[in-house]
Design a protein around this nucleic acid. Sequence first.
DNA 1: TAGACATATGAACAACTATTCATATGTCTA
DNA 2: TAGACATATGAATAGTTGTTCATATGTCTA
Lengths: 122, 122
Amino acid sequence: MIFIIDNHIDRCEVSCIHPKQVEYARSNMLDDDTVLSLANIFKTLGDATRMKIIYSLMLRELCVCDIAAVINASESSVSHHLRLLRTQKIVKFRRDGKVLYYSLDDDHIVSLIKEGLDHVNE
Amino acid sequence: MIFIIDNHIDRCEVSCIHPKQVEYARSNMLDDDTVLSLANIFKTLGDATRMKIIYSLMLRELCVCDIAAVINASESSVSHHLRLLRTQKIVKFRRDGKVLYYSLDDDHIVSLIKEGLDHVNE
DNA sequence: TAGACATATGAACAACTATTCATATGTCTA
DNA sequence: TAGACATATGAATAGTTGTTCATATGTCTA
């Protein structure tokens, strides 16, 4: 007589110890798009150069080369970062002749940063 | 007669258009350590897997393999991320026999995420 | 309209990061 | 005390990201 033992039968795809709690946590989980958007905002703020750029714009609008001077970075680097911040609607700009003036365009971001600062300063 | 022209004389290290405004923005700038810490928090939250891990712990503590099941990731990957979150004091754990239960250990982080969610949901 | 200037953009490269696989550690139980 | 199990850890790899350099674009002025 042959016994075929299949111990995969009552295993879920990913093994887990507490199926009930897994189900519970899963039911509360954000959908993938939301997680991605959420992580994306934080990723944008998670670079020191970008953080400085945003922070330099807290008081007033600045042109690109002034931003570069304030944070001590190359204009090219600043420009690349500004593009990213632009596509995420975190900054906006206006043109005055040859000069582009950038300014903050998202209050949520500012309060996120302030909240983050509270955390850093414990 | 020889003229020596040094056009570096009245240029600041980084050229800028509006020195006054640069000075003003500079006076308001965060010091480097603060910027780095700040960016670091956001960087930690800026990864989808870590975001899911943190979010899965919103309701209750979970063990490693349950977290892995909830977010559909390998236990090894989860373990690596948990180490990072541990060193940043974002999660803590308690041991019960072979099983380690992780839970959130930082209210600031939770409110940061909530604030971020407000932003995503506009 | 040519040249100067502010900024943008693309490509290349170096540094960093997340995941995986293999292995180690620590705890329980037979 | 050996083996099973949950988790941690290290090394290797693939993908991502920031910076730089070279060049392009758009605007002003002589």
